[in-house]
Design a protein around this nucleic acid. Structure first.
Lengths: 260, 260
DNA sequence: CGTGCCCTTGAAGATCTTCAAACGCAGTGG
DNA sequence: CCACTGCGTTTGAAGATCTTCAAGGGCACG
């Protein structure tokens, strides 16, 4: 009853040349997880991990699985979501290259809270619990970096909790768009494009509402020239106006609004 | 405009005898933050912290302050909340002895996301950022313990986000009561008492609703013999029925219900 | 040209908030 | 002893917001 999109998990473990790994490793060392770490330590940590690939649509892990590894995204895009008891899905966010996911690994015996699905073809470095614990003991700064990212996650969650509690759907959608723009958007000529088969469903799951409501809100904004959408691609044409929505509550236009 | 309860911060730093500290230290070593750590390490870590006291109603820190210390509660009770832009308050939870609060300390330059207020007269051990970083480098296991508690915090937040998104107010209130019972409740003869000047406002801020709605829901449950409330004290007389509410959505009784 | 998927739109209705008012109880001061 | 005040709680009524259900539209793909 909750969409049987049970694609097989792909564990292709080759197909990337050593030269590419070098290139990825170089970029990963600049990721948040490695900031302030010495080059030698980064190398050692990266060498202790294993590379994993997933095709778009495949899963890295599924909610309920034993939480046994931490993942650092080298390329592609991953979405992380939680499924509530009645099948309702809550999108926690998208991970861009350099971002990590799959925390909860160090709580012994813990089950995964979320499902991580590749949205685009993706490549990650993964560490299992034992290796991770060993690395953190060897390089305490690495543990601290992990702690910092965990705290940022907490920050984001508190922010969202605040939005769900006190803000209107309009506000939440606007805020989500601004966040998405920063995470996975591409800016060109003042416009931001959010790409990668992006659907209303994603926005609904991010903001805790329905695709019907999202459709109505985006429809209103489209008529006002703030956003445009076509086939899995969303364009923010006027992000200043979006920011504006975040400042003032501005109930105003009930629906039939829109000049011209 | 958001209640000027700006009591002065008390920084009483004595009034507790060394013998008491010994006793508290002994109990703190069994807290989650110190699990699996050797006794000598615990001692060293505890000695690096400073003891702080607050009277009921006083603050340990305020949202917006620079986040400069981690706190471990030795005795008393602390509530942690976030205030949204319009003054709306979101209660993140209560901390019981052995619990810690005031994360976000290691993100350099970060501001406090929350306010921590003593609900009862409280005593804590606190570590500032530099000391904390030094301790974590000296005792990597301590860093890992911190990471684990951060992950548990994430877990709780995701759970609450799920509730806010998909569950009814009834469900959220029931769940909050069950959580509170576990955290700060005292069980006697099958009943659980939640004490300490507990008000409807707290429940409203925990569940993201209004005191009016909370009053109506609790009123219904009172008529059904599930809860009782008198002057800052809440009694859960039938927690099996509460658990039951969490299992089934059970819309049923719209308001005028309640037999005899 | 049909089928499937995603999006849109309308209408009805549930849930929860808001505002206003009253109640109960404790502490205070006459 | 009693009225007064303050705070927390209760209750009613009106109404906003968002969901749900049902149906239709547009576009790609086979």
């Amino acid at each position: 009853m909750h969409a049987g999109r049970s694609r097989t998990i792909q564990l292709t473990s080759s197909g990337v040349s050593p030269r590419d790994y070098q290139e990825y490793a170089k970029r990963l060392k600049r990721s948040e997880l490695f900031r302030e770490l010495e080059k030698a330590q980064c190398d050692s940590i990266l060498r202790s991990g294993t590379w994993q690939q997933r095709k778009a649509g495949a899963l890295f892990f599924r909610q309920g699985d034993p939480a046994s590894s931490l993942h650092l995204l080298a390329s592609g895009r991953v979405k992380v979501y939680h499924v509530a008891s009645e099948g309702h899905r809550i999108l926690l966010g998208f991970v861009a290259p350099g971002g990590s996911f799959g925390y909860g690994t160090l709580v012994t015996g813990a089950a995964r809270l979320t499902t991580a699905e590749a949205v685009l073809d993706s490549l990650v470095v993964a560490w299992d619990s034992e290796t991770l614990a060993r690395l953190m003991q060897a390089y305490p700064l690495f543990a601290i970096r992990n702690l910092v990212t965990a705290q940022e996650r907490v920050h984001l969650l508190v922010e969202r909790l605040e939005e769900f509690t006190t803000k209107s759907v309009d506000h939440r959608i606007a805020k989500s768009l601004v966040r998405l723009a920063g995470q996975i958007g591409e800016e060109t000529c003042g416009r931001v494009i959010i790409d990668g088969n992006f659907q209303l469903k994603d926005l609904a799951e991010l903001t805790g509402t329905t695709i019907y409501t999202v459709s109505r809100v985006l429809g209103r904004w489209r008529r006002q020239g703030i956003v445009a959408k076509y086939r899995g691609r969303l364009v923010l044409s006027d992000s200043s106006r979006l920011q504006h929505l975040l400042g003032e509550v501005a109930p105003a236009a009930t629906e039939q609004a829109s000049a011209s």
